[in-house]
Design a protein around this nucleic acid. Structure first.
Lengths: 215, 215
DNA sequence: TGTCATGTTGGTCGAGCGTCCAAGACGCTG
DNA sequence: CAGCGTCTTGGACGCTCGACCAACATGACA
């Protein structure tokens, strides 16, 4: 095989591993399946990676980074709060229906990480990143619309993240697009009801702790 | 080892498999690990099960049945709509914090089933059962409170199921009980806002005894 | 008591796995 | 040209896995 820098081969192996995982699942992504996908001899693997776990670690962080970047892009654009929310949820759902395998692999990697000693932090960071992005986007949307949220942003971010996760998982199982999108619409409307006029105060450190927000 | 009917041994092996899965994960539940947990010689396994997959299939349906039964029990009891919802969500959350391993295994089994040829239907049935229970409970609660839901019950059931799934998954990763319960509280309040007076039409035997149940 | 279905046991087989390595091939530099 | 770091390769090791089987033990029933 033509000579290639180890660093480049790493990238190709990572990409090949992602393809195998999406097609056949994380557990089927063996060293042999990966090098076979990349059309390389087996020996290459441990010349580029010290272990299979190192490769998986790399794949997991790539997935997280890509998801985070995609999420940020989804929220770009103008409009009032309602249309922003609707557009973002639609954009998210578009990626799910277009790339179901990637989302499925994301779940599999999470559960893999939860069981693998030394990988728990990776799973934690993954979800922390997701929630941070949601927090940013919620804060940014509130800022642009001149409102504030009736619920602490960290809670709202976790809520949003949970709904998206849950709806995606359900859809991966039964592929009921219509009902899934209805749920997202319902969630979007719910978020809108949680926007209220901004109270007079600087955007400084908010004391939080609201006793009884709704009704 | 003392003589025992094959049927009884099956049950013990299933129970042992569940214990191994909860402790070490689905992938670690090998035939050897299972018989070891059950303190039986290896040969027993294929005398009681034709294959490892047959055992897993059995475990998955047991998990689903147990979860469905537990969910039904959570919704028993009296009270107005608000307290019923709050109590049910609290009860659900109790099971999550008390038996995190079982919920984790449930996810792992779902993803396993999604990848295993011939198991897709099992995963589909699993989620369909969950949603059916949620539908029943929502309908029953509406009936008892004399209200109707502003959103079609199948959509609401999927929404509820998704939130519970998502919150549980997030919690399994970062164990943030406080925020998770806040999300459930928020969801409960959301559900309450979706209850409205029943419109005059054949909704069954009792025609709206209580006009305005929740606050 | 002898028969036979039923249950028990330890060992074994072939496949697949992650990992490792010796031997060679390449291509830049002096 | 020789030297040397970098890359390539096929094969091999040790292990675990699901599955299988021949031989034996048990106990109900005739």
């Amino acid at each position: 095989m033509s000579r290639m820098a180890a660093k480049d081969r790493r990238e190709e192996l990572i990409a090949a591993a992602q393809r195998v995982m999406i097609r056949d699942g994380v557990t089927k992504a063996t060293t042999r399946a990966i090098v076979n996908e990349a059309k390389m001899p087996l020996g290459v693997f441990h010349y580029c990676f010290s272990s299979r776990e190192e490769l998986l670690q790399e794949v997991l962080t790539r997935f997280t980074d890509a998801t985070v970047a995609a999420a940020r892009k989804m929220f770009e654009g103008e409009g009032d709060l309602g249309s922003r929310i609707t557009r973002s949820l639609s954009a998210f759902w578009g990626t799910v229906e277009l790339n179901p395998g990637e989302h499925q692999v994301s779940y599999e990697l999470t559960h893999y990480a939860l069981r693998q000693a030394g990988f728990e932090d990776l799973a934690r960071r993954q979800y922390q990143h997701y929630r941070e992005v949601h927090e940013e986007l919620l804060a940014e949307a509130a800022e642009a619309a001149g409102i504030e949220w009736a619920v602490p942003v960290p809670v709202l971010a976790r809520y949003l993240n949970s709904v998206l996760d849950g709806v995606t998982l359900s859809w991966l199982v039964d592929r009921d697009s219509e009902h899934s999108q209805e749920v997202l619409r319902l969630t979007g409307e719910h978020l809108l009801t949680l926007a209220r006029e901004r109270t007079r105060q600087a955007a400084g450190p908010s004391p939080a702790a609201e006793p009884s927000p709704a009704s």
